[in-house]
Amino acid sequence: MSEATDLPLWAAIAVAVFLLVGAALALIGAIGFLRLPTFYERIHAPTLGTSWGVGGVMVASMIFFSVTSGRPMMHEILIGIFVTVTTPATFLLLARAALHRDRVEKTKGVPEKHRADIVNND
């Protein structure tokens, strides 16, 4: 912890707040992922961790390294952009796959499609 000792107090508090908010959102997302009853509800919970959960931790890291190194270190923003753009793509694909599987198995509570065949429509 040698770098943190010469950190000004305002930067330490900002780093701590953003870090704790990000980690808490990730934890709440995981808890929701465990507790919510159906798959389509569960798909909402991890988004908590991948939106502002990642954002909070990345902002904390950016503040910490910018202040300790004395020049702006913005490269954490790359992870932030990357995760926020890619996670919706994976969730979208997974939701379509789950919908397709549920329709094939005729699970209750899943909206029907007009066409019978949704496999070959793209």
Partner: peptide, 25 residues
């Protein structure tokens, strides 16, 4: 002082993230 704040926050955040990883597994 600021070292204590950052160290505590990092430790708590690591515990929370470890719990999240355990729940996900």
């Amino acid at each position: 002082m600021s070292a204590i704040i950052v160290f505590t926050a990092v430790a708590v955040a690591q515990l929370m993230l470890a719990a999240a990883m355990a729940i996900a597994s």
